[in-house]
């Protein structure tokens, strides 16, 4: 059997390509179309073109608030993961290989644990009778029981916990590309440990931090299980809002519009910032 060599890559990637056309592109297109369908409490979904769903989501203050909250939570989570994930990655990278192995297991390992199980832990810690509240009372930091359930603070803390391993991973990857002699060189020229970090290490890992931030931001903005468990019905974010429209209100076209806005916004942010990072650092890092 002889095959035209030009066809070989097509034959090899063909099966996966067919599956993706059938199972990614067509569902997304159908959902995009759905977002322009009409819907009524009694008539259900009607295949008539309308922009009222999009108009509603964009113009209604209620949805504004939810998208605003989603954005705020995602930004805070990203900021905190940078603040704690970057130093932690640096510390891990300086450990002896044995200790690094152990603590990588501790820090990265939770990524493998179901996010529901991890969030449950925070739900147990957060309640007004939970350990955090008790500890704050015992230490005299708080006068009254502190209930972090159904608060933005709670969602931010739990999401930070869920997502910080991604930041550590991204920064570790950047750190391992550094030449350790460069730090020594800076030191031999008279720089203190802190100056070495600020002037030599940090600027070189900025691309790693930025790409970690993009990942964390995207995952935080579209997170579902954690805000659903910690935030509950009272504190909706974009993902839980779409869920409610679909499975409780049953207004699928509106839910589809929300999903499309989330998709377009996130893809734009991810693609845009990756382009920016590449262009900004192309000259220094090939």
């Amino acid at each position: 059997m002889t095959v035209n060599p030009k066809l070989t890559p097509l034959l090899l990637s063909g099966p996966a390509l067919l599956v993706f056309i059938g199972l990614v592109i067509s569902p997304l297109v159908m959902t995009a179309l759905l977002s322009f369908y009409d819907w009524g409490q009694y008539k259900g979904i009607v295949a008539e073109f309308t922009i009222k769903n999009w108009h509603e989501v964009i113009a209604d203050g209620y949805y504004y608030e939810i998208f605003g909250r989603t954005l705020r939570i995602a930004l805070f989570v990203t900021l905190i993961t940078v603040l704690i994930g970057v130093p932690e990655a640096y510390i891990l990278n300086r450990m002896t290989p044995r200790w690094r192995g152990v603590f990588l297991l501790v820090v990265i390992g939770p990524l493998l644990i179901s996010v529901v199980a991890r969030t449950l832990g925070w739900a147990l810690l957060f309640g007004s009778t939970g350990l955090i509240s008790q500890a704050l009372l015992a230490l005299g930091i708080a006068r009254e029981p502190v209930d972090l359930m159904f608060t933005e603070t709670g969602v931010v803390i739990a999401l930070t916990h869920v997502l910080v391993p991604f930041m550590v991973l991204a920064v570790m990857a950047a750190l391992q590309r550094l030449n350790p002699d460069v730090e020594n060189a800076a030191m031999s020229l008279g720089a203190s440990a802190f100056t070495v970090w600020r002037r030599v290490v940090l600027p070189q890992i900025v691309p790693g931090i930025l790409s970690g931030s993009v990942i964390v931001f995207a995952l935080a903005a579209s997170a579902f299980a954690t805000p659903a468990i910690i935030g509950g019905r009272r504190l909706k974010v974009a993902a839980t809002l779409a869920y409610d429209e679909f499975l409780n209100t049953l207004n699928w076209p509106l839910g589809a519009a929300i999903a499309m806005i989330l998709l377009v916004a996130l893809v734009a942010i991810i693609v845009g910032s990756n382009r920016l990072i590449e262009r900004r650092y192309a000259q220094v890092f090939e």
Binding site: F20, A238, A242, L263
Partner: peptide, 30 residues
Amino acid sequence: RFIGREAITALFLSPLMIPHVVLGIAFLRF
């Protein structure tokens, strides 16, 4: 090296970029 190689790669990796809520909604509809 074939035409559309980069596009195919991006397509195959795209589920990493699409929020899972959106995928869930799209599959539910589909």
